[in-house]
Nucleic acid binder design. Structure first.
Lengths: 109, 109
DNA sequence: CGTTCATATGTACATCTGTTCATATGTTAC
DNA sequence: GTAACATATGAACAGATGTACATATGAACG
């Protein structure tokens, strides 16, 4: 640390959200920060899918997909619906698409 | 794997972006997926800051901040400008704010 | 030149993360 | 009840990640 920033820091600290909110924000983006989960979300763009269809699509084990779906569900990004033996997952709301769209814009320009 | 999904999968595969793009998307969100980096970006909302101001604000070592700034710079999220001995960092473009804003909306409702 | 200040970088280490394997749960059909 | 299928879950392990420490680079000044 070095020269004086106290005025600037005071102003910024006042405008920064609470630590807990910033933590939650980081945790949310962490969920988006994995290719497998991004792929799952993209796959659900057109509608619901069962677990085994997703694992077939991504060519990954059912267990791996199930674990990732749990992560997505805990972050309220996907919802599940049971139909007989199968579980159908779908995107929870439009936020998923708009968050991905914003990221997409950043990297493609 | 189990019952047949070949039709569904064919359709979805056609509409999915390239693997490389999905990887890049994940990598981008990974950068947002850390509280320290989120805090740095929020701190830069109001304008540029030098490294030691940021490290004082977040109460972290200069080294830690420098490493994180490098990560942010590599992802084209912040830019740097030298003025004498100091380096001033600022947000590269409005994408940072809009991505964070979308995440913010998701967790606060 | 050498000194001081601001920042960058390499390394090491503890922690976190994603996948696999094995197994448990839950549903349907017999 | 049992068998078969779809999914969930726990444990273990390899690989990635964030920080601190030590040190290097670069700029300003005498």
């Amino acid at each position: 640390m070095a020269h004086d920033h106290s005025e600037l820091l005071k102003k910024i600290k006042k405008d920064m959200p609470e630590d807990e909110l910033l933590q939650d924000l980081g945790d949310l983006f962490k969920v988006f920060g994995d290719t497998t989960r991004i792929k799952i979300m993209y796959a659900l763009y057109e509608g619901e899918m069962c677990v085994c269809a997703i694992s077939e699509l991504l060519n990954m084990t059912q267990s791996a997909i199930s674990h990732q779906l749990k992560t997505l569900k805990d972050a309220n990004l996907v919802s599940a619906r049971r139909e007989g033996k199968e579980m159908y997952y779908s995107l929870s709301d439009e936020h998923v698409k708009s968050i991905i769209a914003e990221g997409y814009e950043h990297i493609t320009e």
